Amino acid sequence: MSYKELRRLPVIKAVVEKRLHRRDAASHWDLTERQVQHLMNRFRESGATGLTNTRRGMPGTHHIDVALGHRILTLIREK
């Protein structure tokens, strides 16, 4: 877990245990209440690991396959 994710853990626990309001947690992190609700749901389902970034270790959304990149560069060079 990253430092940012570790810092969220006690606050999410407090919100789940109803010792803190969602809106207070949201304003603390500059998130919306809906985003805090999403984190709460993931925490309830998976515990602390639910707060980690699910895309960690995966290629970016704008990733281009190497073969396709070579083909694109070849076409550009030909023109």
Results as ranks from 00 to 15, higher is better:
1 M>P: 09
2 S>R: 09
2 S>K: 10
2 S>H: 05
4 K>C: 04
4 K>Q: 14
7 R>E: 13
8 R>A: 11
11 V>F: 05
13 K>E: 12
13 K>N: 08
15 V>T: 00
15 V>A: 04
15 V>R: 01
16 V>D: 09
16 V>F: 02
16 V>I: 10
17 E>V: 04
18 K>Q: 13
19 R>G: 10
19 R>C: 04
19 R>W: 02
20 L>N: 01
20 L>R: 10
20 L>V: 08
21 H>W: 08
21 H>T: 12
23 R>Y: 15
23 R>D: 14
24 D>I: 05
25 A>V: 02
25 A>N: 03
26 A>W: 02
27 S>T: 11
30 D>L: 08
31 L>A: 04
33 E>V: 04
34 R>D: 13
34 R>C: 07
34 R>P: 03
35 Q>A: 11
35 Q>G: 06
35 Q>T: 06
37 Q>V: 05
38 H>D: 15
38 H>R: 14
39 L>E: 05
39 L>R: 02
40 M>Q: 14
40 M>I: 14
41 N>P: 00
41 N>Y: 05
41 N>M: 09
42 R>E: 07
43 F>A: 01
43 F>M: 01
43 F>D: 00
43 F>T: 00
45 E>T: 07
46 S>M: 07
46 S>Q: 12
46 S>V: 00
46 S>F: 15
47 G>D: 02
48 A>R: 07
49 T>H: 09
51 L>V: 07
51 L>A: 07
52 T>V: 10
52 T>Y: 11
52 T>E: 15
52 T>R: 15
52 T>A: 14
53 N>I: 02
53 N>W: 02
55 R>P: 00
56 R>E: 10
57 G>E: 03
57 G>M: 06
58 M>N: 08
58 M>D: 04
59 P>V: 06
60 G>C: 04
61 T>R: 12
62 H>Q: 12
62 H>M: 11
62 H>A: 12
62 H>Y: 14
63 H>V: 07
64 I>H: 05
65 D>I: 01
65 D>T: 00
66 V>A: 11
67 A>W: 07
67 A>G: 08
69 G>F: 07
71 R>C: 14
72 I>D: 09
72 I>C: 12
72 I>Y: 09
72 I>T: 12
73 L>T: 07
75 L>W: 08
78 E>W: 07
78 E>M: 12
79 K>D: 14
79 K>T: 14
